[in-house]
């Protein structure tokens, strides 16, 4: 059974699916199309790049056909200025004021730069954007971004594309506990149990790409992620039993023999 009233409200919009997909890393638009369908996602990221006249077919056509809302990101930006310009170009090109704000500190780790991210977030909020910032697993920064008017916070589980899962469950849990905006675990998911864990820790949604697009069978992994996010969410709502050091019998303790 599913809780029919359990919808994700993000930026004032309602979503039934709590799995947000990225589109990077898919070997072809056809593979991506089938993976997105299997994932059940309703919100999916794209990047903004210089138009290449040689490229045929567009990821936008896939999203439009599947009726999936587009979430442009600012991937590839290293400064607040670059990110703000990229967000404004995305708003113009895609007619959405939603943006996944991503300001990277360096190429090797692809970790988010907290200072530039915060600076860009303030400017974009002031400019009327619905800002979803990608951040480290830092509860203090998450709180500051929420106070700055961001519509969600998106802490990483592990570095982008690493597939290392949720490296710091304690921090993710602290962020989820304190936030009054949705918390979306973004980056680091390697397999279904990682996504389920994020939801069990109290995240409101999971954003992933590589784990699906670079899996040996993307469509099947997309279906697995969909189930994992749903299972993790249901487990969270159901309330897990406390951990105990010793056994607690689940059978009646009456005498076995009369």
């Amino acid at each position: 059974m599913n809780d029919a009233d359990d919808v994700l409200v993000l930026g004032g919009e309602k979503f039934t699916s709590r799995l947000i997909m990225g589109t990077g890393g898919a070997p072809s638009l056809d593979v991506l199309d089938r993976a997105l369908e299997a994932s059940g996602t309703e919100l999916t990221t794209v990047a903004m790049r210089r138009l290449d006249p040689a490229v045929q077919g567009s990821v936008l056509d896939v999203l439009r056909r599947r009726n999936i809302r587009v979430l442009p990101n600012t991937a590839g930006c290293f400064t607040a200025g670059e990110a703000v310009l990229t967000a404004r170009l995305a708003r113009e090109a895609l007619e959405t004021n939603w943006v996944k704000l991503e300001v990277i500190a360096d190429e090797r780790t692809l970790l988010p730069d907290p200072i530039e991210t915060f600076d860009a977030a303030e400017r974009l909020v002031a400019d009327g954007f619905t800002v979803l910032p990608y951040i480290g697993d830092d509860p203090a920064l998450a709180r500051r971004l929420e106070q700055a008017g961001c519509a969600a916070v998106m802490p990483l589980g592990a570095p982008i594309g690493s597939g290392l899962g949720v490296r710091n469950p304690h921090s993710i849990e602290l962020i989820a506990e304190a936030a009054s905006v949705p918390v979306i675990l973004d980056a680091g998911v390697g397999t279904a149990s990682d996504a389920a864990l994020a939801m069990e820790l109290g995240c409101d949604a999971v954003l992933l790409a590589t784990a699906v697009t670079r899996a040996q069978r993307p469509e099947l992994m997309a279906a697995a992620m969909r189930s994992a996010v749903e299972a993790g969410r249901m487990a969270r709502l159901a309330g897990r039993i406390p951990r105990r050091r010793y056994a607690e019998a689940s059978s009646p303790s009456l005498p076995r023999f009369a």
Binding site: G25, A47, R49, V59, L71, P72
Partner: peptide, 10 residues
């Protein structure tokens, strides 16, 4: 002049 469009990413 920069002319941008959406591509796969993120």
């Amino acid at each position: 002049v920069e002319v941008l469009t959406a591509v796969q990413g993120g």
